[in-house]
Design a protein around this nucleic acid. Structure first.
Lengths: 308, 308
DNA sequence: CTGTTAGCGCATTCAC
DNA sequence: GTGAATGCGCTAACAG
């Protein structure tokens, strides 16, 4: 018991004892079993996070920030991949719950009503991130994807472009952005749909498809910077100048967006802030505080660069 | 006890009892506590993996393959980030060991002698991946980075290029590839070094620096496809045609490499296979088999595309 | 400030 | 095929 205290709250042990403990630890190479500790204290000191696939660049800053903030507080962050599959998401949550995480972070909303009810019953802190819904399971940190689409739509409208197309992956959030965009433009628009995750290659084929739909295409709104980059490359291959012949707008302000040629106009989302805010909410909840905000909107900005 | 059996080995329980158990489970919403189970059985059913940073694209296929294979066998894969910092790597291993993982996967070698000794004493299966060293802690799956550099060097030599430069991040493996390359070319070469992780932006500034060192530059060998892509963009901005004025070779055969314009010549590493082989080794070990190979060399290939 | 008692939720072992 | 006793390694609660 004294050793246990020396490790978790050193100041509650006399300096002399503390030293003896530390010597013994060094000699034996003892590593505390955190699993056993968690059994009694009912705190696993783990937080699980669910992303569609790990290779989606957009989420990486959020994951980094979350990992760093949680590690600093002694928590371990465990990442699961749902693969854009709602039923798999459900299974994964159930199996991960067996490890008794102290909190759950999910990109997007929890879909299955059964799982929503379960999570609420369990009273595990849950943060749904990267989008805001009308009825969060618990807490949420993100922004409105419809608002993103609307903002870009208004931007395109101000530019006076009429021959406009959309290149989007068919993930839930991408489709929400498309809906906001179409709504702001006031009419249905030629759209190339690709299976997520979106990629540079998908952007190239999307532009080819859009040009078949509307050879007079002036501007393309893409659901990711990777796709937008692909659209720019395909434009270049076809001898279309960006932005004179074709304007391109992406989403995410991924690390390379400022360094393409021309620079890519895109929508900046502060993924790092999403991670930080989420970590703060979780840590507050895990330390017993109850009166935390349920929803944090981190907002968005259009970053205008050479591609428009 | 009967419930425990019904969950872990259903066939050892009578069908009638099994059904009663399942009904009760459904009614109560019971979720087994895997942590408590592991305490007695001394199996945590977790494997921890360490990468420099999660945003390095090269490792993603390996991570995916590992995650999928381990999940399929009921294991949870936990990812830690060392941030290219040896002392942090050391700390992280120690803290993660507290969760009693059934195995450890590390990109690159374990450096600290103290940690190497500890891991060997603990007899945890350890797989060092993505490079092969002379003295693995336990097992290793990867390839020789010097061999990669040498292969590209010979390729460049065959092409007859004399004004050659290197753009590399200063991570251990990148420097090994550079060493192999320089060795194959038979003389020291102008080199632009960047702080990892490498990126498209880093590639652009690297080419600028290399052109200052040698205005007659004919070819650049890059330590990643992202950098190579940046080099191609910078070349385009400067009016240099790829490959006529400047040839570019990358590393990793990342998903976009085939779709840049021109397509990027690069070194393909079968990251997915590394993940699979690693998972097989781990699962074999965890099921008690001892006679597994210590080293698996997955080899490499040059993929020649338009950029050379 | 230190030590004792008890129990977290399972699985191993053995008895029935 | 089922159940009772026991203990994994730790910490909460309390006593000294």
């Amino acid at each position: 018991m004294t050793v246990s205290r020396a490790l978790s709250r050193p100041q509650t042990v006399s300096p002399k004892t503390l030293q003896r403990v530390q010597e013994a630890l060094a000699q034996t190479g003892y590593i505390p079993n955190l699993l056993a500790g968690g059994l009694k204290s009912r705190k696993s000191m783990t937080v699980v996070g669910l992303v569609p696939v790990i290779s989606v660049q957009q989420f990486l800053p959020t994951i980094r920030a979350l990992t760093d903030a949680l590690n600093a507080a002694g928590y371990q962050f465990i990442l699961g991949q749902t693969g854009y599959d709602h039923s798999r998401e459900d299974m994964l949550i159930h199996s991960l719950l067996g490890r008794r995480p102290d909190a759950l972070v999910i990109t997007g909303q929890v879909h299955a009503p059964r799982t929503r009810a379960l999570l609420r019953k369990l009273k595990v802190p849950v943060v749904e991130v990267w989008s805001l819904g009308p009825d969060p399971v618990d807490m949420q940190v993100g922004f409105s994807h419809e608002a993103v689409g609307a903002m870009v739509g208004q931007f395109f409208a101000r530019k006076g472009w009429t021959h406009v197309g959309v290149a989007t992956a068919t993930d839930e959030r991408g489709l929400q952005r498309r809906a906001g965009f179409v709504n702001a433009m006031g009419r249905e628009l030629p759209t190339s749909y690709v299976t997520p995750p979106s990629s540079l290659a998908a952007g190239r084929s999307a532009l080819a498809e859009l040009l078949r739909m509307d050879p007079a295409l002036q501007a393309v709104y893409c659901s990711s910077d990777s796709m937008a980059h692909g659209v720019m490359i395909e434009a270049q291959v076809r001898g279309l100048r960006v932005p004179q012949d074709l304007a391109v707008c992406g989403f995410g302000d991924t690390d390379f967006a400022a360094h393409t040629h021309p620079g890519l106009t895109t929508v900046r989302v502060d993924g790092t802030r999403i991670g930080h805010e989420t970590a703060q909410l979780i840590l507050a909840r895990c330390s017993g505080q109850d009166l935390v905000p349920r929803t944090i909107d981190v907002g968005i900005d259009i970053i205008e660069r050479g591609s428009t």
